[in-house]
Amino acid sequence: MIVPRTSYVEATARRRVEAVLDHDSFWEFLPPEERVTSPHLSQLDLPVAFDDGVVVGGGTVQGRRVLLAAQEGAFMGGAVGEVHGAKLTGLFARAVDERPDAVVLLLESGGVRLHEANAGLIAVSEIIRALLAARGRGIRVLAVIGGGVGCFGGMGIVARCCDAVIMLEEGRLGMSGPEVIEMAGGVEELDSRDKALVWRTFGGKHRYLLGDCEYLVEDDVAAIRESIHQALEAASGFELEQLEAEHALLEKRLRELAHLHDAIDMWRALGLPDPDTLPMLDLARFTPIAHRARSFWKGEG
């Protein structure tokens, strides 16, 4: 019998918040009863959400004080509109004032809400500016990615601006999503219906192997709580030295892998044994193998 776990992937944004924070520690600002909704959607006669698809507030994780946000994938694919974006930007401004132990982002978003066009685009750039400003003041920012929608577009950039990314194997992280790539580049470029291909291109395991995420966890809210706690304890920083190291890593990645077209070829190039079998391995067996690739990125370029 398999022990039942509480799934993070299947949970709504609000249930994720409850599950990640210490019991009863959550407080919310701009809660749904304030009904701050999108001015654009109502003009287009589209349904609105009373929280505009994002929950923002604070609480504690194993006693450590955090501010946090959770995007709701079920409302317009977690897409960022004007209000949605302003709530996230406000969260970082508040963090600068309050100096919590971290800002935690539970991300699930297809990117900018197209219905809100420029307002959504501006919102994303404001989020990024506010995030970097908070980090510049020494506030740690963590992202958790593991919803059905994945984390794409502007929110994909936001995720990579954080101190650490925690991913589920089922999570997906990228700029353009698979359907968009197929539409723009044709099915030869990427067959978005080939789920195994999609997941080995955008999924948690590949991101972990390429060094795009720091933690890879099972679909279990307890495991996510634990990795948030670990990320709070880990060393972090936002100095020129770290930025240069990051750039060196990206350069090395381009050099070593840019000519390869399938993730499996990249894993082979990283020297991983039996790369074909990696997608099917459970994390207990995958993680030790993955360490080899991770040390490759940390080694000398």
């Binding site: 398999i2 799934s7 992937v9 299947e10 194997e169 089922e170 219906r193 080939d194 789920k195 195994a196 291909l197 997941w199 999924g203 948690g204 395991k205 679909d219 997608p279 099917m280 459970d282």
Partner: peptide, 25 residues
């Protein structure tokens, strides 16, 4: 008893190998 294809693989002790189109990982 299983909420995902991955759960089914886990139940089978890794013996079940779902076709690519059913794999969300």
């Amino acid at each position: 008893a299983a909420r995902s294809m991955k759960d089914l693989v886990r139940w089978s002790g890794g013996l079940y190998q779902p076709p690519a189109r059913f794999r969300h990982w």
